[in-house]
């Protein structure tokens, strides 16, 4: 199980790295007038923290892992 797990993880990280590094360097500056979609609540990585707290409260006591449930930030485009 572990070897399959790490193979899947490596593949996922490779795809993510290629996506991040190569595909869109020319577009890396998003202007304020282009942020309409990003400001929508359904695009917020950390929207509805109470909801997230309730979800994590359930899963944190039933899974042996932690992390990645969110810090602030995430390109809301609101500043």
């Amino acid at each position: 199980m572990h070897s399959r797990f790490f193979s899947s993880l490596k593949l996922t990280l490779l795809v993510a790295a290629l996506t991040v590094s190569g595909c869109s360097l020319s577009k890396w500056t998003v202007k304020p007038h282009q942020r309409e979609l990003l400001a929508d609540k359904i695009m917020q990585l950390d929207a509805e923290p109470q909801e997230r707290a309730a979800e994590e409260h359930v899963l944190a006591n039933r899974e042996g892992a932690i992390g990645g449930t969110g810090t602030s930030g995430g390109g809301c485009g609101c500043n």
Partner: peptide
Amino acid sequence: SAIVLLGAALAGGLARPAAANTAEAAARVT
């Protein structure tokens, strides 16, 4: 869960577009 707590405690704060004066009251039962 401290990180989750942080998010919950700052429900009106960092993750939301700032308006001049806003407030929210929410209740939830799971």
